[in-house]
Design a binder for these strands. Structure first.
Lengths: 147, 147
DNA sequence: CTTTTTGCAAAGCTTTTGCACCACA
DNA sequence: TGTGGTGCAAAAGCTTTGCAAAAAG
């Protein structure tokens, strides 16, 4: 591929007037290597901890903030706990089940539909990258209806 | 009126097997007197602080949790900061503007519509009491489009 | 060389918890 | 009078900040 995600990200950091340092590359690699679509600052700290470039919590927080500012990551609050990040190249809404704690993705077509309706009926432009809704997933809703 | 909100709430506490104490009534009064539709635990602590029944933070947290459990309040996380509560007798969604920081209410008709669509298209039953969406309000969206 | 970034340590903020004392029912 | 509630103080969990040393451009 011509210029992968990694080099594109490094370009973006430079374009924003930022310096490309070893700690930043370590965070970036951890973010790109993440199997999960969602990860917290602690996840990144842990992932880097045993590598050749262990990085301080504060630096990880500052780097994630930077990556969010330049549009590579989206940050959102799934609950009262730690902030959760996900790559901006995989936009989607989040559905959090209060019963089983699962986090499923809201299909982008439904998300677009819903956001469009709110825009036209309430004049509010919802940021699709930060949609998180609580409730009951299909399985738990069925369980509740029966039980 | 026959049995106002206050006495109904006290009834509910008793019905749940809880005791009606001075601190709990103080929190309840602060909640019912709140001009704002939204308030945090700190708001309640501050409101009670200079009254005849100043109450400890821990007790306020425990009481707000109780009131939420018995269905008098809804709790939601508007951002990474403090949890926000609102009275359950005034159900509505929340629209948070990232630009100006305003919090407006999502009309319940639009909310119902949206929640219904997510239920039918994604099989997920959204809790209408905990809907909070980030984005740009009408004014700020217009400003962004022009600027 | 100048400016940004890092690491460390400490503090900030919200919320929770352990425990002895107090009080409602 | 017995169980449940309260206050105090301390701790937990996430995140931010001040500052001197280190490093990028």
């Amino acid at each position: 591929m011509i210029g992968g995600r990694r080099s594109a990200a490094i370009e973006a950091i430079r374009a924003a007037g930022g310096r490309v340092t070893a700690p930043r590359q370590a965070v970036l690699d951890a973010v790109l290597d993440a199997d999960e679509h969602h990860f917290t600052a602690s996840d990144i700290v842990a992932a880097i901890h045993h590598t050749k470039q262990p990085t301080d919590r504060a630096t990880v927080y500052r780097t994630l903030e930077l990556l969010t500012e330049i549009g590579l990551l989206d940050q959102l609050q799934l609950d009262s706990g730690a902030a959760v990040y996900h790559r901006a190249d995989h936009p989607h809404g989040h559905l959090l089940c209060n019963e089983c704690g699962s986090v499923e993705e809201l299909p982008s077509e439904v998300l677009e539909d819903v956001v469009g309706r709110i825009a036209s009926h309430a004049g509010f432009v919802v940021d699709t990258a930060r949609v998180a809704l609580s409730g009951a997933c299909r399985a738990c809703a069925a369980k509740a209806a029966v039980g």
